[in-house]
Simulated assay, not measured.
Amino acid sequence: PKGVATRKASGEVLSAIAPVLPELWGGSADLAESNNTTPTGEPSFIPEEMSTKDFSGHKYGRVLHFGIREHAMGSVMNGITLHGGTRVYGGTFLVFSDYMRPSVRLAALMKLPVTYVWTHDSIGLGEDGPTHQPVEHLAALRAIPGLDVVRPGDANETAVAWRTVLENTNRPAGLCLSRQNLPVLDRDTFASAEGAARGGYVLADTDGTPDVILVATGSELSLAVAARDVLAGEDIAVRVVSMPCREWFDEQDHDYRDNVLPPSVRARVSVEAGVAQGWREIVGDAGRIVSLEHFGASAAASVLFQEFGFTPEAVVSAARESMIAAAEGTG
Results as ranks from 00 to 15, higher is better:
Tyr99Ala: 08
Val290Cys: 03
Glu127Ser: 09
Glu307Asn: 15
Gly296Ser: 15
Gly84Leu: 14
Ala297Gly: 14
Ser192Tyr: 08
Arg246Gln: 14
Val63Arg: 05
Val260Gln: 05
Ala318Phe: 04
Met110Pro: 05
Asp205Lys: 07
Leu125Ile: 15
Tyr89Lys: 09
Thr92Pro: 06
Gly11Phe: 04
Arg320Tyr: 07
Asp211Pro: 05
Leu31Thr: 13
Trp248Glu: 07
Asp154Pro: 01
Pro312Ala: 11
Ser75Thr: 15
Asp186Gln: 10
Gly27Met: 05
Gly274Ser: 15
Thr158Ala: 11
Leu223Asp: 01
Ala161His: 02
Phe308Trp: 06
Glu307Cys: 09
Thr330Cys: 11
Ser34Cys: 15
Gly287Val: 02
Glu220Arg: 05
Ala276His: 14
Gly129Phe: 11
Pro1Glu: 13
Tyr89Glu: 07
Ile144Pro: 03
Leu82His: 13
Glu272Asn: 07
His254Cys: 05
Ile144Asn: 08
Val269Arg: 03
Glu33Pro: 06
Gly199His: 01
Val315Arg: 02
Glu167Met: 12
Ala32Leu: 09
Ser317Phe: 05
Arg179Glu: 12
Asp188Phe: 02
Leu221Asp: 00
Ala155Pro: 02
Asp235His: 08
Glu234Phe: 05
Asp207Phe: 10
His83Asp: 13
Ala226Cys: 05
Val303Cys: 06
Gly146Met: 11
Thr52Tyr: 10
Pro22Ile: 11
Arg228Asn: 06
Ile289Phe: 06
Glu42Cys: 09
Val149Leu: 13
Ser219Lys: 00
Val160Thr: 05
Gly129Lys: 12
Val184Pro: 02
Pro312Glu: 11
Ala155Ser: 12
Gly199Met: 06
Leu221Ala: 07
Gly287Lys: 00
Gly126Met: 06
Gly296Pro: 05
Phe66His: 07
Ala5Ser: 15
Asn168Trp: 07
Ala273Pro: 02
Thr119Gln: 03
Tyr99Asn: 03
Ser122Asp: 08
Pro130Gly: 11
Leu138Arg: 01
Gly79Pro: 04
Gly41Trp: 10
Phe55Val: 14
Ala191Cys: 08
Glu220Gln: 09
Val63Ser: 06
Asp154Met: 03
Ala319Val: 01
Ala297Asn: 11
Val20Pro: 00
Met100Gln: 11
Glu157Leu: 05
His137Met: 13
Val165Asp: 02
Arg69Ile: 09
Arg239Gln: 14
Leu292Asn: 09
Pro145Tyr: 09
Thr37Asn: 10
Gly146Leu: 14
Arg7Cys: 07
Tyr60Cys: 08
Met100Ala: 15
Glu194Ala: 15
Phe96Glu: 00
Asp235Met: 02
Met323Ala: 03
Ser28Met: 10
Arg69Trp: 09
Glu281Ser: 15
Val95Thr: 14
Val240Ile: 13
Leu261Glu: 06
Asp54Glu: 15
Leu141Gly: 00
Gly309Ile: 01
Ser34Tyr: 14
Ser103His: 11
Gly74Tyr: 03
Ser56Gln: 14
Trp25His: 14
Gly91Tyr: 02
Asp255Ala: 15
Val316Arg: 00
Pro47Cys: 04
Ala232Val: 12
Ser298Met: 09
Arg7Phe: 10
Asn36Trp: 13
Leu231His: 03
Ile289Tyr: 02
Pro47Glu: 08
Arg280Gln: 14
Arg7Gln: 10
Lys59Phe: 10
Leu94Asn: 01
Asp253Pro: 07
Trp162Met: 12
Lys8Cys: 09
Val4Tyr: 02
Pro172Thr: 12
Ser44Ile: 02
Asn78Cys: 15
Ala143Thr: 08
Pro19Asn: 12
